[in-house]
Design a binder for these strands. Structure first.
Lengths: 334, 334
DNA sequence: GCGCTTTGGGTTATCGATTACTCACTTGAT
DNA sequence: ATCAAGTGAGTAATCGATAACCCAAAGCGC
C-alpha cells in the first residue's frame, strides 16, 4: 500500500489539509515548525504525491502529450523530445509521447491520449511537412512541431528552411566561392524551400542563373544504388564543366556523404578544390566525414522548447506559423 | 468541461453505475437495450474515460514506465520502445518513458515516475551493460532491458551475445571460410561476450588459436580519425599475412564500415576475397554498405515485447537473467 | 476591557469512476 | 398461491488531494 496524505496526517496529529498545505501549497499559512515536522514525516514514510488524485481537482494531469508521426526514435526526434522535455520540466510537467504507427489514425491516438487528461497536446512530425488534421482536433492540438496544419488553423513551429539556405549560400559567397551547384532532393518540402533561399541569395549577390546549377538527387530511396549513382554522375559531369563549381551545396547531410565519395573519385580535394556544405547536421554523418562537414543544424531542440512554452502559457497566443532559425555549424568542408 | 459518466447518466435517465457497467464492465447485468442506448449517448457526447479517476480505485494508472539511461531516441531505442509498446497495447496499457539525463539520478527519476502511479516500471539501457541500482529500488523496478542489475536482484533481458557470435562464426565456417579474423571493440560488455562465442565456435570446429586473430579497434571515440587509422592498419597488416584471412568478423556494424573502406583500399573484393560479417544490424549502415552487410540483428524488439509480458503477468515470475537470441540477417557480404 | 484583525489549522464537499450492498420486480417451480 | 431464484438497476462509500469555508486563540488599538 502506498502512503497517502492521510497516513502522514495521522502520524503528525494534524489534518490532511494541513499536510497538503505543508507539502505543496507554498504560501499556506502555518508555522514553520509544523511545516518542517510534516515534511520530515513525509520523507520518513516515503510519501510520493499521487498525481491522479490531484488531477481529480485540477482537471488535468501534469503531462504534455505528443503525438509523433513516426516511432519516437528517429535521430531527429532527439532534439524535439529533448527540448519539449526541458521546457516541460521547468513547469513540473512530464512529456508523454504516443506514436502514430501502423493503422492507428490521429483520431484514435488522440482519444487514447485524452484518457490521461494531459494539460496540452502537441503534434510532432519527423520531417518538415504539411499535415491534414481532422477539423475537430484543430482546437485539441495546441502546437504543430516541425509541420504545418494543412489549413494553418493551429500554431506551427517549423525550421526556417529558406532563411537557412540564404544564410548558408551567403556564407559560401563570403568564403569566396562563386560557382555554386546545389544538389537537391526534389519532392521534399524542406528541399523546395531551401532551393528558394539558395536562388534568393544568388540573386541578391547579383549572379544570374547560368552560374548556378540545381540538380536533383533521388527523393525516396536514398539508400539505393541508383541514388548513389545519380549523385555520382552529377558530380562527374559538374567537374568536367568548363566552369567547374568551386562549391557544392547539398540538400542534406546524406546527399553530402555521397557527394564526398563522388568528389574523391574525381580526385577533387575538399575544401581546396570544392567546398561542400549542407543542411540538417545529422551529427553521426556530419562530424564523421573527412573533412568534417559544415552544415546548418536544424532547430529541433529549439522547436521543442518553444512548443512547451506556448503550450504552457497562461493565455493561448493567437495562431501563427513560427519559423525558427537554423544554426550554422562550421566544420572544415568550406 | 469534459463529459463524465454523470452527464451520460443524466441524459440517459439512469444511474452512473449503470453507465459505468454499460461502457466498461463487460459482464455487468443489464438489458442489451439499455447498454446500447448508453453507448450511443456516450458516443454522441464525446465521452472519453478519465483514467485518473479510474486509477483512484484501481490504485494504478494503465502505464508501463520506462527509465531510459539515454535520451529515448538512439536508433537502438526504436526496437525496445516499439516492442514494449506493442506488448503493452495488448493489455490496454501505454508506455511512459522518462530519460536519465544530465544530473538526474535514478532515485529522483523513479520518484517522479511513481507520482503517476504506473502499473510497472522497467529500466532500459541503450547498450548492453551492467547497472548499479540503489538497493531500495530492486523491488520497484520489474525488469531490466538490455542490461543486468549489478547483483542480479532484478529480472534482466539481454541479448545473447555469446550465442550470436557462435552462430555467426559457424555461419562463416559453413560458408567455407577458414581463416577468420575478429576485429573487436574492447571494453564493451557486448564485445567481450561476443569474443567468447567466437573462440568457442573455433574451438568446437577444431581450430587452434593461431589461425584466428583477435584485434582491437578503439573503444570510445569511434568517430575519430585514430580509430579509423587503427582499423586501417590492422586490415593492411592482415592482408599482408602469409595466411591472409578469408573472413573478417567485426565487433559491430560501425567497425564493419571501416573495414569495408580499408579492404577497398587494399584492393580486396567483398565477399570474393574476404567475407565480412558483423553484429547489431544498424540498418542505416548495414543495408547501405556495398555490398550490403550480413550481420546479427540485436533482439531489441523482442526484449521490449518480452518485458511487457513479464511486467504485466498476473504473478511476477522469479528473478532470472534471460538471454534473447539475435537474428541472422543474410545480405551479401559473406 | 471590547471589538477587530491576523494566525494556525480543522471540516467538509468535491472531482469521476468503481463496487459492495440493497432493492424491486419477474419468472418459474411446487 | 407462494416462495426461491434471477434480473435490472439504484444507493452510497470509496480512492487521495484540494479548496472553500469555518472556527478558535492570540495580538492590537482604542
Amino acid at each position: 500500500m502506498t502512503i497517502s496524505l492521510n497516513d502522514i496526517a495521522e502520524r503528525a496529529g494534524v489534518s490532511v489539509k494541513t499536510v497538503s498545505g505543508a507539502l505543496h501549497g507554498g504560501s499556506a499559512r502555518m508555522s514553520d515548525d509544523t511545516r518542517l515536522r510534516i515534511k520530515e514525516i513525509a520523507e520518513e514514510l516515503g510519501y510520493v504525491t499521487n498525481f491522479a488524485a490531484r488531477s481529480m481537482r485540477q482537471g488535468w494531469m501534469p503531462l504534455i502529450g505528443v503525438i509523433a508521426d513516426e516511432l519516437v526514435t528517429s535521430p531527429f526526434a532527439t532534439g524535439i523530445i529533448g527540448g519539449l522535455d526541458s521546457g516541460a520540466r521547468a513547469s513540473d510537467m512530464a512529456v508523454f509521447a504516443m506514436t502514430l504507427s501502423g493503422r492507428r489514425n490521429v483520431a484514435s491516438v488522440l482519444e487514447e491520449m485524452h484518457r490521461f487528461r494531459p494539460r496540452a497536446v502537441a503534434y510532432a512530425a519527423m520531417y518538415h511537412k504539411r499535415v491534414e488534421l481532422p477539423a475537430e482536433f484543430a482546437e485539441t492540438v495546441g502546437v504543430m512541431i516541425n509541420c504545418r496544419e494543412a489549413n494553418d488553423r493551429v500554431t506551427s513551429l517549423v525550421p526556417d528552411e529558406t532563411g537557412a539556405a540564404l544564410e548558408m549560400t551567403n556564407y559560401l559567397l563570403n568564403a569566396g566561392r562563386r560557382n555554386i551547384a546545389y544538389i537537391n532532393l526534389p519532392g521534399l518540402l524542406a528541399s523546395e524551400l531551401r532551393e528558394i533561399g539558395f536562388r534568393q541569395a544568388l540573386d541578391q549577390a547579383g549572379f544570374n542563373g547560368t552560374e548556378a546549377t540545381v540538380l536533383p538527387a533521388v527523393n525516396r530511396a536514398i539508400y539505393s544504388d541508383r541514388a548513389q549513382s545519380l549523385v555520382h554522375s552529377h558530380v562527374q559531369r559538374l567537374m568536367r564543366f568548363p566552369q567547374r563549381p568551386d562549391a557544392i551545396l547539398c540538400g542534406n547531410d546524406r546527399v553530402a556523404m555521397e557527394v564526398y565519395a563522388a568528389l574523391r573519385r574525381c580526385g577533387a580535394a575538399i575544401p581546396d578544390d570544392v567546398a561542400v556544405a549542407s543542411f540538417d547536421n545529422q551529427v553521426e554523418i556530419a562530424s564523421r566525414l573527412d573533412p568534417p562537414l559544415t552544415t546548418m543544424a536544424l532547430p529541433h531542440r529549439a522547436m521543442g522548447r518553444k512548443a512547451a512554452q506556448i503550450l504552457l502559457a497562461e493565455d493561448r497566443p493567437p495562431v501563427e506559423v513560427k519559423k525558427l532559425p537554423f544554426r550554422l555549424v562550421e566544420r572544415s568542408s568550406v
